[in-house]
Write a protein that binds this DNA or RNA. Structure first.
Length: 820
DNA sequence: CGTGAACGGGG
DNA sequence: GTGTACGTTCACG
């Protein structure tokens, strides 16, 4: 009986493939317009790549005869089709080589690439699932109408066999079902939080209409959705069934690629529980590359921390991207305060006190849910533009976002994609450097009435207005053109004036799409439109970095060099114009100018901006970024690339904007970090450097009198490898060795805490565990010279308070002079 | 100036 | 798996 074909409108969310018999079969999972989860199978998509022979040579017969030995059968060419394409500004003719299996593509290309008659092989290195969604025009979360018939294939969801994709639309699934989750684990100190030794104690889930906390020990609690089970294995099974019955489109966690999901997977393996969350009944797959990832077939696992780090960390005030800090800034809510380091003890000895931990666990899921919900427009709009599935889109770098966009447009426009660089090519690219953005180093000091302007789309507008592209580079038809302004460039570089480059075309499209979105936004305020505008902006801005990124397919050293060259040209012109109008420029980096009013008004500054914009070509524009009553600029250490951004500003609402001071991390003592923040606050909010110095002096005094608590002076450093393999024995290594001798287990990953005590020996001999000392034991001199002073000295130096002697040697006498 | 070690998020 | 992939910063030699 022939199954009835029907039209199905659905939102595809995940694509994968399996080799069944002799064929690759593509699976799409998604949700129908009516809200049901389904799978759609396409058995009719064939793997292929392109071969371009040298002009006029026919190699069709030779291609058809290729047979390469491979495990499971020979790799053969199924069919060859003649094609006409474009490649880096040229029209080319060649062949589309269709193979039996995806794995045959690289095998056959390996044979063909060395033939004398072959000019070029292309698109042999595009993953099969990506090839499928590009060729079919399928965008994750965008509505697709397909003709398909219900199959009898067994899975958690009905599986349809697809006969054709008939259309794809702009409509996106704006309200996917989101489920957030979080785990609490048994984590004694002295070892890494690892799933080999430590159990999951609690797991929570939070959805629009779901609250669930599961524990395998009982305790009194009023936590909503609390459920007790008898064992950790049961906890995992319950977790699986919660997800199976909730049927989320998006399963999100905070750092869940790096922690929660791999941990759950590790425990499931140990406890012999099948973590079969996949809609095809497959288990969660954890891949341990440099960065761990966890994926579920048919469900979008989104580590929202990754997205925040990638897309928002640049614009956020907080330097720390912990769930607590991020929630405070984006949601105005914070984590529940419990001492999570004590959890393992309470679990062992006082389970009746676990109630607050259950609340804490659920609240973390709640915050993760809220963050994901809030950022959903940004995630979906970026996905809509670049066409990558959510989990992928969230974790890849900007270069991959750009490349995904370019690949889709290349397919539509008949452009062949250059291959990924191989070994020696990559080495060559890595060695190619060029001058980056122009930096006008700040004169250290405190400044008033700072106005900041920037070229928001400096690089995209440069690429567009100068037609910068690997295919327009040094064309023979325009060799008499004025060269691009490249400082120290050995050879003359120019770009074609007659033919529009492929990448500038794409940039123009993105810019004009954004202009349209901004026009729509003027009529109606809408978070999705705002997110689309932002996505288009960051995508356009990423093209320049992409051109200079060694792994990029459209890598072009000359194009990247020319782009930054024109950028320097325009920013320098803006700086000299500002100076000629008597606005002292105190700092500039790449696309921004910080100037001071020096007696003039904000209106004058805005008028100056108009003057600049009158002289800029095309779409280039200088924008007003902000006004800051006060700001401090600190000289950065002489690094490899000169001065780095290190400044703090305060806006008219009294909000601090601190940049470049986040070097004080967990391997510094809390007191150093605190003093640095307080000093910046006093200087900028109260404009009172003397008070800031007095504050430092107070802290120094407290240190000398041993009035600070041990946690304030505790330094935490992670043990990253086996003790034996350390060549340089830092203080944390010395402590770890002593812990080992005392019978405490220490393993790689452990956070070692120590306090530096008095004595004349090396620091590592004076490092003690916090538990074995009292406040009178710590060494005030160490904390003054190696912690407090380095954290604040450049701030005071900027204010003219640090005498030369303090920076030279940090001996006690010289210090004494400085602080009294 | 190049290299190795550490951090980040999570408990 | 149509295999390759963190990005940055600091101390040290």
């Amino acid at each position: 009986m022939e199954p009835a074909t029907e039209r199905i409108a659905f939102f595809p969310m995940d694509v994968t493939y399996k080799v069944v018999g002799e064929k690759a079969v593509v699976y799409l999972f998604g949700r129908t317009k009516d809200g049901n989860q389904i799978g759609v199978v396409d058995k009719n998509f064939e793997p292929y790549f392109y071969v371009i022979p040298k002009k006029g040579i026919d190699i069709e017969d030779k291609l058809m005869k290729i047979a390469v030995d491979a495990p499971g059968g020979k790799a053969r060419v199924v069919r060859v089709e003649k094609v006409k394409k474009h490649f880096l500004g040229k029209d080319v003719e060649g062949y589309k080589i269709i193979t039996q299996l995806p794995r045959d593509v690289p095998l056959i290309r390996e044979v063909v690439k060395d033939w004398d008659a072959v000019e070029l092989c292309a698109e042999y290195d595009i993953p099969f699932w990506k090839r499928y969604i590009i060729d079919k025009g399928i965008i994750p979360f965008s509505l697709v109408t397909a003709e398909a018939s219900l199959s009898d294939e067994k899975a958690k969801v009905p599986i349809f066999h697809l006969s054709r994709v008939s259309s794809s639309e702009e409509t996106i699934l704006e309200k996917p079902k989101i489920l957030a989750f979080d785990i609490e684990t048994y984590s004694p100190p002295g070892r890494d939080i690892n799933h080999a030794d430590n159990a999951i104690l609690l797991v929570s889930c939070y959805g629009e209409r779901l609250r669930k906390v599961i524990s395998w020990k009982k305790f009194p609690t009023k936590t909503e959705g609390m459920e007790f089970v008898r064992s950790e294995a049961e906890l995992l099974e319950k977790f699986i069934s919660v997800i199976n019955s909730y049927k989320p489109d998006i399963l999100c966690g905070y750092f869940s690629d790096g922690f929660d999901l791999p941990f759950i997977k590790g425990r499931a393996e140990k406890l012999k529980v099948r973590l079969n969350l996949g809609l095809d009944d497959s288990e969660v797959t954890v891949e341990r590359r440099r960065l761990t990832t966890a994926d579920i077939v048919g469900i979008n696992h989104v580590d929202i921390y990754r997205f925040i780090k990638k897309a928002l960390s640049g614009t956020m005030e907080t330097g720390e991207l912990s769930l607590d800090e991020v929630s405070k800034e984006l949601l105005g809510e914070k984590k529940i305060e419990v001492d999570v380091e004590e959890l393992y003890k309470i679990w062992d000895s006082h389970p009746e006190k676990l109630g607050p931990y259950a609340e804490y666990n659920l609240h973390d899921s709640y915050l993760t849910y809220k963050l994901t919900e809030k950022l959903l427009p940004n995630i979906l709009e970026l996905t809509r533009i670049v066409g990558l599935p959510l989990p992928e889109m969230v974790r890849v770098g900007f270069s991959q976002l750009v490349e995904s966009y370019i690949l889709r447009r290349a397919f539509e426009m008949g452009e062949l994609a250059p291959g990924l660089p191989h070994d020696n090519e990559l080495g060559k690219r890595n060695a190619e450097t060029y001058v980056g953005g122009f930096v006008h180093e700040p004169k250290p000091g405190l400044f008033k009435d700072i106005v900041v302007f920037d070229f928001r789309s400096l690089y995209p507008s440069v690429i567009s207005s100068h037609n910068i592209d690997p295919g327009t580079l040094c064309c023979p038809c325009c060799s008499d053109k004025a060269p691009a302004p490249i400082e120290g460039g050995k050879k003359k570089i120019w770009f074609c004036s007659k033919h529009r480059g492929f990448l500038p075309k794409l940039i123009d499209e993105i810019i004009s799409a954004r202009v349209n979105v901004l026009a729509m936004l003027k009529k109606e305020k809408n978070p999705f439109l705002e997110a689309r505008s932002y996505s288009l902006k960051i995508l356009a801005n990423a093209f320049y970095g992409y051109l200079g990124f060694p792994m990029a397919r459209w890598y072009s050293h000359e194009s990247a060099m020319a782009t930054s060259g024109y950028g320097r040209f325009y920013i320098k012109r803006a700086i000299s114009l500002a100076e000629s109008k008597n606005f002292p420029v105190i700092y500039s980096d790449t696309d921004s100018v910080f100037l001071t009013l020096s007696g003039k008004t904000k209106k004058d500054a805005l008028a100056f901006r108009e003057d600049i914009n009158k002289d800029l070509p095309g779409i280039m524009e200088l924008e007003f970024q902000g006004f800051y009553p006060r700001g401090i600029f600190v000289s950065a250490k002489v690094g490899k690339f000169g001065a780095k951004k290190k400044y703090a500003l305060i806006d008219e609402n009294g909000i601090l904007k601190i940049r470049g001071f986040e070097t004080v991390r967990r391997n510094w003592s809390p007191i150093a970090k605190r003093v640095q923040e307080e000093v910046l606050g006093i200087i900028l909010k109260e404009e009172n450097p003397k008070k800031a110095i007095a504050h430092v002096r107070d802290v120094v005094e407290m240190l000398r009198k041993h009035q600070l608590a041990i946690p304030e002076v505790t330094i935490s450093t992670q043990l990253t490898k086996e003790l034996k393999s350390y060549e340089n024995l830092g203080p944390h290594v010395a402590i770890a060795e002593r812990m080992k001798k005392m019978g405490i287990i220490v393993s790689p990953g452990a956070i070692i805490k120590y306090v530096v005590t008095k004595g004349a020996d090396r620091i590592r001999d004076r490092a003690k565990m916090p538990e074995e000392i009292t406040p009178k034991d710590y060494d005030p001199d160490y904390y003054i010279n190696n912690q407090i002073l380095p954290a604040v000295e450049r701030i005071f130096e900027a204010l003219g308070y640090a005498p030369e002697a303090v920076l030279e040697g940090k001996s006690q006498e010289k210090l004494g002079k400085f602080f009294s």
